[in-house]
Every structure is written in C-alpha cells, then in structure tokens.
Amino acid sequence: MSAENEALLKAIFAAVFEMQDEAQIPAATQDTTKSWDSVTHVALITALESEFDLFIDTAEALSLVSYEKILDYISNNS
C-alpha cells in the first residue's frame, strides 16, 4: 500500500472516530475503540468508499473491524 493511501486511511480514522493521537490508529479495532459503534461504522464505510472510490459489499463491510483489516482490504482492492 502506498504511503499516500496509508496517510489517507489514518486521516479517515482520525475524522470518523475523532482519534487525536495518530500513533494509536494502527492498533485500532472495533473492540478497543469506544466510539466505533454501528453508527460510526456506517460513516467509516461511507468514508472508505468515498475516498478510495470503492464499493464494499455487505459481508466485507461487516468484516472490516480493525485498522489492520481495512489496510489489507484497501491494499487488495484499490
């Protein structure tokens, strides 16, 4: 994944989950991030589709529950 895409993904996490500390973002998961609920998950999927020009299908959207998984997904699909 290019450094540009990784920076974009971090910016999305910072905006959607209001994460101030960029160093925490790579370890973020749905379980460990308080603000990551069903509502912000929808915002996250919208942001990913909008910024990376993707269409994320249902099953995939439900499986994207950590920064690392999303990073993998973007690397393989964008």
């Binding site: 069903s38 998950h41 929808v42 999927i45 919208t46 589709e49 909008s50 269409f55 994320i56 299908d57 249902t58 959207a61 439900l62």
Partner: peptide, 17 residues
C-alpha cells in the same frame, strides 16, 4: 442494496454528497 440490507442506509456512497 448492500448497505440498505446491512445497515438500513439506502443511499450509495457515490451519491451521498
């Protein structure tokens, strides 16, 4: 349809703005 079924959000990201 995918996000409508999964999350109840019917508007596609491509048209949200």
């Amino acid at each position: 349809l995918a996000s409508y079924l999964t999350h109840g959000t019917p508007i596609a990201s491509s048209h949200v703005s």
